[in-house]
Structure formats: structure tokens, C-alpha cells
């Protein structure tokens, strides 16, 4: 068995045992999707709530997996000395990153399939032609969020990573248009939100997957800058021990 496959198998086994990660990756996005689709407590720019909430939830799912699960999991691996130990094995950094990427991608594919199926059952019918753009946005969002998660995991102690990542998750959840569209936020807060990656991913997914929608011009530069800068910062400052 190759080192990469061996590491992927271990990552999958460990991931399946961490119930709290499953809750963050799937439980919370599902809850948000179902609740805010059925109970219209916040104003959305579409006739039916699910048409906005479903694509926004896809962005939330990506943030949950790429930033929260990856960041917290890696932070504790660093605290336990697992990364240091792996660093002295033939696995190597590239295969370790590849294994983590595989885990994130597999989780996200499962999330998108489950969330889309549930949204479909709630009446969501996104335009097929919008998917390629949405997927590009989700990939860029994954890079941005993974970079942020790994930057925190590689520079802070495990418990601090846990606290900071969860805090950041909550802030981005509330200001990223995942529940409340950013147009409904106070002007100054919306301005700040537009330079953060969460709102940019949501803008891309909702803009491309809402029938007749369009992606705001501000979203792509924000997303591309975060997708490039966050992984580079993680690579620069990540500490293995």
C-alpha cells in the first residue's frame, strides 16, 4: 500500500469517529437548510426561501469542512505531536497535504450530494447551467477556508485553535450571507463582510444557482485573493510542532 493511500485510510477512519466533526460538517448545514427553508424568519431575495438558503448552505458546508473540521482536527494533531511524528516518516509533506485534501474533497462531495438531495425534496430546482460557476466558487472557497483553518492550526495551541475557529465560524456564518443576506446587514457591516471569504462564496453560489441571478463583481476578486493568500500564509507560518 502506498504511503498516500495508507494516510487517506487513516484519515477516513479517524474522521468517521469524530462525531463532533460530523455535526459541524453535515448536522449544522442540514439544520440551517431545513429550518430556514421551512420557516421564513429572515427576508431572502427569492420567492421561496429554499432557493436562496440551499446554495448559501453549500457555501456553509464548505466552510464547515475546510475551515472548522480541518483546522480543529489538524490543530489537535499538532498538539498531540502527531504531525511531528509524521514529519519524521517517509510520508512527507506533499502526501500529507494530498491526504488531507482528499478527505476534505470527499467530505464536501458527500455534503453537496446530501444537501442538494434534501433541498431538492424541499422544492429547490437550481439552473443546471449555474453549477460550473458554483463549483468554481466552492473550490476557491475550499482553498480560502482550508488556508485559514491550517494557518490557525499551525500557529495556535490545539484548544485555542478550537475556540478561535469556532468563534470565526460563528462570525462568518452570521456576516457571510449564509442565513441573513448581506444586503440586510447594516451598511458598514456589509462593507466589511464583502472583503471576507464567506460572503464571497455565498455570492458566487447564490448568484449562479438562483434562476436569473448573477454574481456580484466584488465577489471574484475577494474570493481569488483569499484563495491565494490564505494557503500561502499557512505554508509560510505553519509549524509542525
Amino acid at each position: 500500500m502506498s504511503a498516500y493511500r495508507s494516510q487517506v485510510r487513516t484519515e477516513l477512519a479517524l474522521s468517521s469517529r469524530q462525531g463532533e466533526q460530523l455535526l459541524v460538517s453535515l448536522g449544522i448545514p442540514l439544520l440551517v437548510l431545513v429550518f430556514f427553508s421551512l420557516v421564513e424568519v429572515v427576508p431572502v431575495p427569492t420567492e421561496r426561501a429554499v432557493d436562496y438558503v440551499a446554495p448559501a448552505t453549500l457555501a456553509l458546508a464548505v466552510m464547515s469542512t475546510a475551515m472548522v473540521s480541518l483546522g480543529i482536527g489538524t490543530g489537535f494533531e499538532r498538539q498531540y505531536g502527531v504531525l511531528k511524528r509524521l514529519g519524521a516518516s517517509p510520508l512527507g509533506t506533499r502526501r500529507w497535504v494530498a491526504a488531507k485534501t482528499t478527505l476534505v474533497v470527499l467530505t464536501e462531495v458527500a455534503q453537496i450530494v446530501v444537501l442538494s438531495a434534501v433541498a431538492f425534496s424541499l422544492g429547490w430546482r437550481p439552473p443546471i447551467g449555474g453549477w460550473p460557476v458554483a463549483i468554481v466558487g466552492l473550490v476557491l472557497g475550499t482553498l480560502a477556508f482550508a488556508g485559514i483553518g491550517l494557518l490557525l492550526a499551525g500557529t495556535l495551541p490545539g484548544l485555542v485553535t478550537l475556540a478561535v475557529t469556532n468563534g470565526l465560524y460563528l462570525v462568518l456564518l452570521l456576516t457571510g450571507g449564509m442565513i441573513v443576506p448581506i444586503d440586510e446587514l447594516p451598511g458598514w457591516l456589509a462593507t466589511i463582510a464583502k472583503v471576507l471569504p464567506a460572503a464571497a462564496v455565498v455570492e458566487v453560489t447564490t448568484g449562479s444557482l438562483i434562476d436569473g441571478g448573477s454574481v456580484g463583481g466584488w465577489a471574484w476578486p475577494t474570493l481569488i485573493i483569499w484563495a491565494a493568500a490564505a494557503p500561502l500564509a499557512a505554508a509560510r507560518w505553519f509549524r509542525w510542532d
Binding site: 500500500m1 495508507s6 498531540y80 502527531v82 511531528k84
Partner: peptide, 20 residues
């Protein structure tokens, strides 16, 4: 000290490293 995940079994971690 450390270096091994608390949520893994001895056989699993040895198979993981054996794969390297």
C-alpha cells in the same frame, strides 16, 4: 511523549506507518 492520535487503535497506527 505523544505522537500518536488518542482516537486510533494500535493495530491501525502500525498499519498506517507500515504503509509508508
Amino acid at each position: 511523549e505523544g505522537g500518536i492520535q488518542p482516537a486510533i487503535r494500535p493495530r491501525e497506527v502500525l498499519r498506517q506507518y507500515a504503509g509508508f
